[in-house]
């Protein structure tokens, strides 16, 4: 069974066609990288899968279940089992590292002792345990990156979406974090949909690369 499936999905903004009848299937445990020039529709795909926007036409399914189709969102983002690392991370600036990670756990109804343990385990995994009580603004770019990852992974999502997560970092750190991401993936076994416009980054991370051009998948 495909874990994520887009079936002939189109999306326009006004007159502009951002996605043109895209079909795409992702197998459990894959690391798919979408590669393509700016404006080709990469972010739009991510937002469709996350459920922030519905497709104008076509079907999006996750784990065999239709989550949105033909202009309608059927399953809201919070019930899709999807985690996301945003391009600008979107860490909540008013919350500590701990609170950032805890928010989703609380919303999902985990009890306090359980939450504590999950937060500690997760922070340990990304090597950030001692930064638990800092605010995002008190962390370096790379550290913020790890927290964003931890926040997305703590709920053990079926699918992790990453929209150019490393593009704001310098090359050294970028390369180091690629390894880190692969390590986490191997350990936790989620399915990953990763967006970049950097070919090197793509080949490093991907188990499969999909190239896009102007709202279509480039088969050439």
């Amino acid at each position: 069974m495909k874990i994520v499936e887009l079936d002939s999905v189109s999306k326009s903004y006004g007159n502009e066609r951002a996605l043109d009848k895209i079909s795409l299937g992702i197998e459990q445990g894959e690391r798919i990288v979408i590669l393509g020039p700016s404006g080709c529709g990469k972010t739009t795909i991510m937002r469709l899968v996350a459920g922030f926007i519905p497709p104008d036409s076509g079907i999006v399914s996750i784990a065999g279940k239709i989550v949105s189709r033909d202009g309608k969102i059927i399953v809201p983002p919070r019930k899709r089992g999807v985690g996301m690392v945003f391009q600008d991370l979107a860490l909540w600036p008013h919350m500590s590292v701990k609170a950032n990670i805890e928010f989703g756990l609380k919303a999902k109804g985990f009890g306090k002792p359980e939450r504590q343990k999950m937060i500690r385990d997760m922070l340990e995994l990304v090597g950030m345990l001692e930064y638990m009580d800092r605010k995002p603004a008190e962390l370096s770019g790379g550290q913020q990156q790890r927290i964003a990852l931890a926040r997305a992974l703590v709920l053990e999502p079926k699918v992790l979406l990453m929209d150019e997560p490393l593009s704001s970092l310098d090359l050294d750190l970028n390369i180091r974090l690629r390894k880190e991401i692969i390590r986490l993936h191997d350990k936790l076994g989620f399915t990953m949909l990763y967006v970049t416009h950097d070919r090197d980054e793509a080949t490093d991370i991907a188990t499969r690369i999909i190239t896009m051009k102007q709202g279509r998948i480039d088969l050439s």
């Binding site: 983002p77 919070r78 945003f86 600036p93 008013h94 989703g104 999902k108 709920l155």
Partner: peptide, 26 residues
């Protein structure tokens, strides 16, 4: 407000939780 901050909340919570813990504090 950067809309991404609220979207990050939508991945895990309903709008009441987002309002209380993210939007209003911001």
């Amino acid at each position: 407000i950067n809309p991404r901050l609220q979207e990050a909340g939508r991945l895990v919570s309903d709008w009441k939780g987002i309002l209380k813990s993210i939007t209003v504090p911001l």
